[in-house]
Computed example of a mutant assay.
Amino acid sequence: MIKKALLGEFLHEAESTRKILQAIPDSALDWKPSEKNWTTAQLASHISEVYNWYESTFNLDVFDMGAYQYDKGDVSKAENIVAKFEENVAKAKQAIENSDENTYFNDWKMEMNGNTLFPPTPKIQVIRGFLFNHLYHHRGELVVYLRSTGNKVPGMYGPTADDKL
Rank of each mutant, 00 (worst) to 15 (best):
Y68F: 15
S34G: 13
Q42W: 07
K77E: 10
M65T: 01
F58W: 01
D74N: 14
D163E: 11
E97D: 10
L43R: 07
I96L: 12
G140C: 05
I20S: 06
Y104K: 04
G129I: 06
A14W: 11
A67H: 05
R139I: 14
D71F: 14
D162C: 12
K36T: 14
K72V: 07
I124Y: 12
L29R: 02
A161H: 09
G8I: 03
N133F: 01
G158I: 13
D64Q: 03
T149N: 09
M110N: 04
G66D: 01
W108I: 04
G129E: 08
V144A: 14
L146R: 02
E87W: 10
G73L: 11
L21S: 15
Y157R: 00
M1R: 13
F118L: 08
P33R: 08
Y70T: 01
D26A: 13
I47T: 09
V126S: 07
T17I: 15
K123L: 03
N113M: 04
V89M: 08
V50E: 12
P119D: 01
Q22A: 14
N59R: 04
L135R: 12
N113I: 01
S148H: 05
E79F: 06
Y68T: 12
T121L: 05
V144K: 05
A14N: 11
A14D: 12
L21D: 11
G66Y: 01
K91I: 11
S56W: 01
L142D: 03
L142M: 05
T57C: 06
P120S: 07
R139H: 09
A83E: 13
L142Y: 09
P33S: 11
I20C: 09
D30Q: 14
N80C: 10
A92I: 00
G155W: 05
P159R: 00
E49V: 11
E101L: 06
F130I: 07
A44S: 13
L146N: 03
K36W: 11
E111Q: 06
L131Q: 00
I2G: 05
N106G: 05
I96G: 05
F10C: 07
L21V: 13
P120N: 01
G158D: 08
L21C: 09
T121N: 00
A5E: 10
Y68H: 15
E15N: 15
P122C: 00
K72C: 13
I124E: 03
I24Y: 07
E141A: 08
I127H: 03
S76R: 10
L6M: 09
N88R: 10
K4Q: 14
F118Y: 11
N102H: 05
L131P: 03
S27Q: 12
T17P: 06
W53V: 02
G66V: 03
D71L: 09
G140Q: 08
A161C: 06
P120G: 04
F118M: 09
A44P: 07
P33K: 06
E101N: 05
G158L: 13
R18F: 14
G73V: 08
N106Y: 06
M112G: 02
V126L: 00
K164S: 11
A161Y: 12
S45I: 00
K36S: 15
G150M: 09
P154H: 09
G155H: 05
L131I: 07
K93G: 09
W53D: 06
T103Y: 02
N151C: 12
N106S: 09
E49P: 04
K152Y: 05
D61E: 09
M1K: 14
S45H: 02
P122I: 02
P120W: 00
E141K: 08
A5D: 06
